[in-house]
Every structure is written in structure tokens, then in C-alpha cells.
Design a protein around this nucleic acid. Structure first.
Lengths: 232, 232
DNA sequence: ACCCTCAACAATGCATACGCAAACGAATTC
DNA sequence: GAATTCGTTTGCGTATGCATTGTTGAGGGT
């Protein structure tokens, strides 16, 4: 019905183009901090490193620039975009607006409780990680929860936007994760949002999520500011 | 110190690259319906039409694809992305979330009334267009209001996201504009949002805007659905 | 009459070549 | 000794060539 000419069955595995590979690899390098913020690389260096020519690398860089991960400066190659506290403020304002909206949409569906297994599993994983004091596992579960929520809400544009800023803030989240107290409260709040969604209470889900986002966002920004690093 | 070697003075007018020109021209052609939805064009056709070679055209198409305006299909060139009622629903869900947030941010500033002249002028222009029954002028003023609002809110990411979906829905707005009653109510609502912002009442500004968006979005979607066109 | 196979063609994706312009350094002059 | 200017180098933007791959149409077989 909704004009999906690229129907799902034959969607499967087309050989990824060199440009796509370059994009994926560079993105991974940036998120993993292998290409640290502020790093400058020439197109030709990257092409050599990835075993490609400049053309697909260039295409990948254009995409990464539009995603806000790098900046292309004409004679100095690309630079990995650093994230300052001000950027985190922007990102959290966006997330604080879009994610509660996603929760509301989810709770408004005809059958709000359908398909929430992913989110429930993510909550459980968070609780287990919390008990085991495993910050890394907690972060993975947290990401799974947020990703699952926006993907389930049925609004692909909203989901894409959330994932974009989510990626931008990935490094900062990984950084603060190390030096903040165990996110016990966040874990409980996730669970409560999920319950409100399953119960089909859009307004409550939205407000719970909004408050959660607002609090954790403020915590994270002040943590970065107090940590004294100008950017990440 | 913080590495701003590209200081502002010489920032000004660098000759726009051919790729930028191609991007701007193609975007204008799409928004003006000169390249109608569903239209297919080969890279080489566009290159010929714009008087460039395929390379900068290709770069422009990659950007337009990420902006959601076209789709690149491997052996058929690009296709202008049609907008269906379902897409408009998505777009209005996003706007309904982000724009009220922008209004709230604007009202939360230290001096909320500062710099609102643009918005005031846009409101006045809307009122005049309404009196003159000039739909086209009204649409231009409406766009100026919304654009000004998100640009003033101080959050560049939020502004970019709003403008992106705004562009996606441009054609649909122009279409419905012709066949809906004069937007008298919208005009008044804009004015009230502006007053709430100037008065420094974030919550009220957000809620007023949310209601405005919700109503006008629903109107527009149902108008498209009733009009019987499958896509625009 | 319909379907399947195969071959020719066409558009793309990538690599490479070329010219321009900026940046860096050296040399000369004040 | 410092500054300015000129020459060289280097990276980028664009164009173009080539190989890959999908598409389309025709012909033959069932």
C-alpha cells in the first residue's frame, strides 16, 4: 500500500558497492575512535588505507559530512567532527523531543503491546548488566532499547533522525559511561516507559520518557562540562 | 586556540563548486515541480541539461538522496521521490514534535523577545495575504515564519532536520493550498504562539504550537486522502 | 500461445588523468 | 632581522575511459 516498490523479499544481499563499504568502514572507524575527533586525513590516504580509489571514498565522505560526522575542508582533507558540550546540548534537545514522540506513537497503535519483546529483552539485559556492574553491556542494551523503540514506532523519518544524532553522540556517551555512577535510575525508568506503552497510555509514556531524557541529558552535559574536556 | 583557522572574514563568497550548483539547481527543479514526482532521469541526461559532466551531478544526486528528495535506482537513473499521504503523516509527526520544541527553546532564552522582528513581520505578511486572499503570498509568509522560528531557536541540528522534512513536503503543501479554505485560523494561531514566546512562557508556547501543528497537519493529510491522489 | 534462454546493448560504478588554486618555503629586499 | 613576494609543490575538483552488470528484446522450444 505505501508504495514500497523495493519490496522486501528480493531486497536481500546485493553486493555492497565500494562507496557503501567505504562509508560503513569509515563510520565504524570514527565511532570506535580509531579516527579520533579532530583527526585530519586526505582523500588519497583514506583511499590507500581502504584499498580503493578516491572516487568511492569521496562519495562516502560526502555522506558522512551530511550525517554530521566529518567536515570536508578543501585543502586539508576531511576532519572528524569533534563534539563539544554545546553539541551535546543540541543533540539532547532533539532526542528529548523526538524520542518521547516515538513512545507516544508506539502507545497509540491499535495493539500497543505487540512486538515489544525486543524492548523487554533490552530492559532485562540492562537490569542484568546493572547487577553485574558491566557498563559496556549496559550501554549496548541501552542502545538496543532506544534503537528498537524508534524503529518500532513506524515513522522511518523520525527513526532515521534519531539514529543520526545518536551516532553523533556515540563517542561522548562512551566517554561519560566510564565516569558516571551506575545508571540504576535510568534502567528503572526504561522499564516504566515500556509498561506505559504496553498499557496503551500515550500521554504517560511520552511524559515519562521526556522526563527520563531530560534528566539523563542534563546529567551527561554537566558531566562533560565538569570533566573539563573541551570536546570529544 | 580552539582551531578556528577558517576565521570569519575570508569566509564569505567562495565560488560555489559545480557539485553545489548542480545540487541547488536540481533541488529547485524538484521543488518547483519542473522535475515532477516519479520522473526518471539518467545521470547523463541531467549532466547534459546542466552543462556539466556526470561527476558533480552524481555527487549532487547522492546528497539529494540523503535528503529524501530522490531515489537512485541502479540502472534507471534517479527518480523523484513521490510523497504519499503516509509520508505526510510521518512528516507531520516529526514537525509536530520538533517545532513546538523550537518554540519552547525560543521562549526559554534569557531575553525571549529579542530578535523576533522576523517572525512578527511574517505574521503581519500572513494577515495581509489573508485579507487580500492571496494564497501564494500566504504560503511564502508561512514558510518565512516557520523557517525563522527554527533558525532562531539556536539549535542548528533541529533547524536542519525541520528544513529537511519541510522541503520534502513542499510540493504537497503547494498542492493542498489551492483547495483548502483560506487559512484564517492558522494565521491567528501563529500570532498567539509568537506572543507566548515574547512573553517568555515556554510551556504555553510549546502547547499552542503543538495544537496548531496537530490540527493543520491532520487537515492536510485528510485533504490529500480525500483528494484521491495516491501521491504527489 | 506462452515461457524460457541467450545475446547485444546501455548505464553505472570505479579508476585515472588533467588543470587549477592554495599553501608552504625560500630568497631577496628593506 | 623581518616581511613580502615569487616559485614550487600538493591536493582537489572535474572530466573521461573502461569494465561490470542488469535489462531488454528476440528467437526457439515446449
Amino acid at each position: 500500500m505505501n508504495s514500497a516498490p523495493t519490496s522486501r523479499p528480493p531486497e536481500a544481499a546485493r553486493a555492497p558497492s565500494a562507496a557503501e563499504q567505504a562509508h560503513a568502514q569509515l563510520k565504524a572507524l570514527i565511532l570506535d575512535n580509531a579516527l579520533p575527533p579532530g583527526a585530519q586525513r586526505l582523500e588519497s590516504e583514506l583511499a590507500l588505507q581502504l584499498g580503493l580509489s578516491r572516487t568511492p571514498v569521496r562519495e562516502a565522505l560526502v555522506r558522512l559530512q551530511q550525517e554530521g560526522l566529518v567536515e570536508i575542508t578543501p585543502r586539508h582533507g576531511m576532519r572528524v567532527q569533534p563534539i563539544a558540550a554545546a553539541d551535546m546540548r543540541e543533540i539532547y534537545e532533539v532526542l528529548n523531543s523526538l524520542e518521547p514522540a516515538a513512545a507516544e506513537l508506539l502507545a497509540r497503535r491499535a495493539d500497543p503491546a505487540a512486538g515489544l519483546e525486543r524492548l523487554d529483552a533490552a530492559c532485562t539485559a540492562m537490569e542484568q548488566a546493572l547487577a553485574a556492574q558491566d557498563r559496556r553491556a549496559w550501554a549496548a542494551a541501552d542502545e538496543a532499547f532506544h534503537r528498537g523503540l524508534v524503529e518500532l514506532c513506524g515513522n522511518r523519518r523520525l527513526a532515521a533522525m534519531v539514529m543520526q544524532v545518536w551516532d553523533q553522540s556515540h563517542r561522548a556517551r562512551m566517554f561519560t559511561l566510564q565516569q558516571r555512577p551506575l545508571p540504576a535510575r535510568s534502567t528503572a525508568e526504561h522499564r516504566r516507559v515500556l509498561q506505559a506503552i504496553a498499557a496503551g497510555e500515550p500521554e504517560r509514556a511520552r511524559e515519562l520518557y521526556r522526563r527520563h531524557r531530560h534528566r539523563s541529558g542534563a546529567e551527561l552535559v554537566s558531566l562533560i562540562e565538569r570533566s573539563g574536556v573541551a570536546w570529544l
